[in-house]
């Protein structure tokens, strides 16, 4: 479904962020993109939606359903962003406009981007919040972003991201900026929503264990290049690249995470 071929990205004359990145995500599949900060994971995600920083030079091709998404402009690009691919960024407090209430954020996505009538969008906003496990729906809808915790706000973002039933979800370290106690909860909700809707996911994280728990395949990224792609157990039992091995060894022992263990809590 998603095919990234030889994607390279440079900023300015000599800052190369991505080097010949190639990666595919099949329909319904979850692919993890693992690496340390600065390795180019986020930039890969952002290139798919054409929201890389201004002044970036991008080469290579990215296709979604065989359509060259880097070549999309205007209305076609807008539709792809609104209906097919959605993204969850790291810091929810930065994602929501600080001066607009939460409800406006959800309505904006459904009405202004996807073209649903405002009335439907309003009703759906409440339903979506319930779906991501929020009880005090009305209070949250009326709240401004600064009045909510990061975990609560990230649920709102997830609700917004699944509103259009996209077929691909781009998740950029969705739990890193959150409180340790809410990280697992939010991850569980995300995982649950993905399964419910049958979405494919490209999941960026620095946490190899987390990726192993929620992804079907994992790509390891270092200095803007993908050094290894494999099944989680392959990477765990038989890492090929020295960097993967180092990642495996550096993680804290005895901590394994499964979505099932948290989804009910």
């Amino acid at each position: 479904m998603l095919n990234i071929d030889n994607l390279s990205l440079t900023i300015g004359p000599d800052l190369q962020i991505l080097r010949d990145v190639s990666l595919a995500v099949a329909a319904g599949e979850a692919v993890g993109l693992v690496g340390e900060s600065g390795s180019g994971k986020s930039m890969t995600l952002r290139s798919i939606l054409q929201i890389e920083p201004a002044g970036s030079e991008v080469t290579g091709t990215i296709t979604f359903d065989d359509v060259d998404v880097r070549g999309l402009t205007g209305e076609a690009l807008r539709r792809m962003r609104a209906n097919d691919v959605s993204m969850i960024a790291q810091n929810p407090h930065a994602v929501l406009n600080p001066v607009l209430p939460v409800e406006r954020y959800l309505i904006e996505g459904m009405h202004d981007a996807q073209g649903q009538p405002t009335k439907t969008a309003k009703i759906r906003a409440g339903e979506l919040l319930e779906q991501v496990g929020i009880d005090a729906v009305d209070r949250v809808l009326r709240s401004y972003p600064h009045q909510l915790s990061g975990g609560m706000l990230q649920r709102v973002v997830i609700a917004g991201a699944i509103a259009g039933r996209p077929r691909l979800m781009l998740a950029d370290e969705p739990t890193t900026a959150l409180d340790v106690t809410t990280q697992a909860e939010v991850m569980a909700i995300l995982d649950e929503c993905r399964h419910e809707l049958g979405m494919a996911m490209l999941f960026v994280t620095h946490d190899l264990d987390l990726a192993a728990a929620v992804c079907d395949r994992i790509a390891v990224m270092k200095d803007g290049e993908i050094v290894e792609i494999g099944l989680p157990e392959q990477l765990r039992d038989n890492p090929q690249h020295p960097y993967t091995r180092a990642l495996m060894e550096s993680r804290p022992a005895g901590l394994t995470w499964t979505p099932e263990s948290e989804a009910t809590s």
Partner: peptide
């Protein structure tokens, strides 16, 4: 700003 970029990424005109 991130909220402007993400609004674009969500398909807002």
């Amino acid at each position: 700003s991130e909220h402007s970029v993400m609004a674009r990424a969500r398909g807002v005109a």
